[in-house]
Simulated scan of single mutants.
Amino acid sequence: MKPKFISISEEIIEKIKMGELQPGDKIPSENELIKSYNVSNTTARKSLLEIESKGWAQRIKGKGTFVLNRTEDHHLLRTLGSIDSTRRGFNESLRAEGFNPKNIVLEKTILQHGISSEISGKHFIMEGPVLKIHQLRYADDVIIKDEVRYICLKLCPKINMMSTEISYFKVYEEKYHHKITDIKQTLSADILEPGASDNNFEVNKQLPVFILDGVVLCQPEKVLEIEKSFYRGDKYKFAIVANPEYNDK
């Protein structure tokens, strides 16, 4: 008969294999395993260590244990419109998947006039002054995202004094106490030519990219953030989660 910690670890690994737990997702904590399986803390701890030792997850001190990215091509899966994913932030998500994140800021400036963007056929306007941040996002030593973010300084004063490596979503909620009411995003595709002025990916061949246009809204229907980013098409996959409401009759 298998030891209990082996049975628990195999059950969780199977959930990872089946896609119930995705790269970057948090594995149940030691306390959660104790409650779910009615086991001792020693058994729960050994279960997590077994999953980690087999290369399916890694522990991040003070955060928890997260599913590693084990796909052969290391595609990163992101879910459109997911508040939980957005809240975690770019750098934290990559670390949870086993990558080493790095940012290079190309531009960080304050625009006195507002900007606008059209998302899903609707026009969104952000009043000035606006913080513009243009940065390249790396996973290990590969540029995987060319990100431009605009943040309303009226709603988030002095956010320009903070590091660009923060999770902006968490800062909006925890420092400025904004309640996020909606995230709207559109995704399109294009081919960037080598040497083109808008190609910052350091590749010498044509590169397929996803173009993400997004807006973050807070109460009362004010535009908090506008984003326009390029994601490497050979490094990313996107998912859409629908939660239909059923009426019980």
Rank of each mutant, 00 (worst) to 15 (best):
L111R: 13
S188C: 06
I166L: 08
I110L: 10
I240W: 03
S36E: 14
Y138C: 12
G89S: 12
K108A: 03
M126R: 05
L49F: 04
N38T: 15
D73W: 09
Q112I: 11
M18P: 03
Q22Y: 05
R78G: 05
S163M: 10
G121K: 00
S163I: 07
K17T: 02
R87G: 11
I151T: 10
R232C: 01
G233P: 14
L212V: 15
D190N: 09
F210W: 14
H123N: 10
G214I: 06
E52F: 04
L77R: 14
E14A: 06
F124P: 07
D73L: 15
T65R: 01
N204V: 05
Y138M: 08
L217Q: 04
E202W: 04
T71P: 02
S40E: 08
P244A: 07
Y138T: 08
K228T: 15
Q219N: 13
I133T: 05
D146W: 07
H113S: 13
E32F: 09
L131V: 02
I60K: 00
H177E: 10
T71S: 09
G81C: 12
F90G: 05
S7V: 09
F5A: 09
I6A: 02
E174F: 09
T71F: 07
I8N: 03
N160V: 10
A44T: 12
Q185W: 04
N31H: 12
L94I: 07
Q219H: 12
T164E: 14
G81Q: 12
P23E: 02
L21R: 02
T43C: 01
I6F: 04
L192D: 00
I143C: 03
N247D: 06
I16F: 05
K15D: 11
M1F: 10
F5L: 08
D141P: 05
S197G: 03
T43M: 03
F169E: 02
D25L: 09
D234W: 14
D190E: 14
Q22V: 11
R232N: 01
L155I: 08
L192E: 01
N91T: 11
I83R: 14
F66Q: 00
Q135P: 11
G114D: 07
Y231E: 07
D141K: 13
S167H: 00
A239M: 08
S116L: 06
P157T: 01
G121D: 00
E50G: 06
E127V: 08
E202C: 06
K54S: 10
I104T: 11
T79M: 08
N31R: 15
R149Q: 09
Y150R: 00
I133C: 02
E118L: 09
I104L: 14
H123A: 03
K122P: 00
E52A: 06
L48R: 05
